[in-house]
Design a protein around this nucleic acid. Structure first.
Lengths: 245, 245
DNA sequence: GAAAATTTGTCCGTATGTATT
DNA sequence: AAATACATACGGACAAATTTT
């Protein structure tokens, strides 16, 4: 396909938008399946008979959609996506819910600290502000792909040593069990969506402009005492949530 | 603040990124509260000592974040955002949940049609594929701002005439009541986030690159019979969802 | 391992179109 | 009608990252 593709000027539809639509269609049609990449910008520019910058605008739009991901020096990769489903219920656990969808799930402890509770953390954990809490920074992966980046807080007195337990097991549920907490309940989950920030892009291997779904969740024990408050940031193009009532 | 602002070249951080960060900071600092708008691109370009296109890259990034919204011929408006909270539970209803957060909520019926059920709709409503269903296209607004754009399907035989009832009342709950269905339950809700498509941008008054949260939900009556399946698209920067267990 | 080629990223400059004031 | 302001498109130059030679 050497000749210039049929895109039209002065129609009220911007060239970059027409080109983006055509490239998306080609991707969906499987034209680039051999390489998994879009042709170089210079090649596309020549094929469409436009300036390279116009092609870049088109690819930028597709990047925002999550259809492609540009890598400097390498090329523009086509993103394949299968979404993991996270069921949210009283029994919500990270690894359990998606256990049947992937081969391997892991929780990696990035950082662990003991600190005084902020006003927000204290409110959710029903502690006095400044009480000692344990903070986890964890990365959730499924099949070697990062899926979520979470910050969790636990009451410090009750769960001293939970860091070790988590390192050993790679699971909050199992760590709780080692600490004598046999069961817990998801009391509240809040979900919103934002544009990925620099930290998300690094931790979750996202492209700039990607979407992060942010959840704030509270877990309580069977007598209603808060045991974990966490803020998680998910790679939006790799997950969805379901609530079954 | 007349002179050129301090942005640095050759630091490994792109000029447009530095400028975006500075403009965001100025907005948060309230520097532009008088007009509610960012200064014109040409002015910013001069202030920062860069080309207008570099400023445009910065503003485009802020547009993606939802911080600003450019309007051709007018200027670049600063977006104020207060997020509406949508509780999701067995008793989930659009207007009820957010009733205490806004002064006025409305549901507007954009389109109404009777059609044969697609495979997907039939599966959720537990009908045979091709059975007659009623399709609603509705726009949800809160305080004159569009919040959600929903497509809903109802079993055609049971709810013939529901369009009229909805037009009169502006509420699904009340329309159901007029049809003799006094109560219903939210059985399932699925939440994901995507980049807004052209339709979202038009209906929800979003900027290109904004985020849409997509929910798929099923309502059933008290004996478990499906009464409504709907796919809704929310302006992500105006909403959040909470699940209370 | 080093050099060259390839490919995307950033920035500037200019011109013209389109929408609003 | 004119001025203002954003939108699109082109052209060039160089930087940065990766792959190939």
């Amino acid at each position: 396909m050497g000749g210039p593709k049929e895109i039209q000027r002065q129609t009220g539809v911007a060239l970059w938008r027409q080109i983006a639509d055509r490239i998306r269609a080609s991707i969906n049609h499987g034209d680039f399946d051999a390489t998994g990449m879009v042709p170089p910008e210079t090649v596309l520019a020549q094929q469409f008979g436009v300036n390279r910058h116009t092609v870049r605008s088109a690819l930028a739009a597709l990047g925002q959609e999550g259809v492609v991901r540009a890598v400097q020096g390498r090329g523009t990769l086509i993103e394949r996506k299968e979404r993991l489903n996270f069921p949210i219920s009283k029994r919500t656990r990270f690894s359990q819910g998606i256990g049947d969808q992937v081969r391997e799930t892991r929780g990696l402890l990035l950082a662990l600290a003991e600190e005084p509770a902020s006003a927000e953390v204290a409110r959710w954990l029903k502690l006095s502000e400044g009480t000692g809490v344990i903070r986890f920074e964890t990365l959730g992966t499924a099949d070697q792909r990062p899926v979520s980046r979470a910050t969790s807080w636990f009451p410090g007195d009750r769960f001293a040593g939970i860091g070790e337990a988590y390192r050993k097991t790679g699971s909050i549920t199992k760590a709780f069990r080692e600490m004598g907490l046999l069961d817990y309940i998801r009391a509240m989950t809040e979900i919103s969506a934002v544009h990925a920030e620099a930290g998300d892009i690094a931790d979750l291997e996202l492209s700039p402009g990607a979407i992060a779904m942010v959840t704030r969740a509270l877990n309580i024990d069977l007598s209603g005492v808060p045991v974990q408050y966490s803020i998680s940031r998910f790679a939006a193009d790799r997950v969805q949530f379901t609530i079954e009532n």
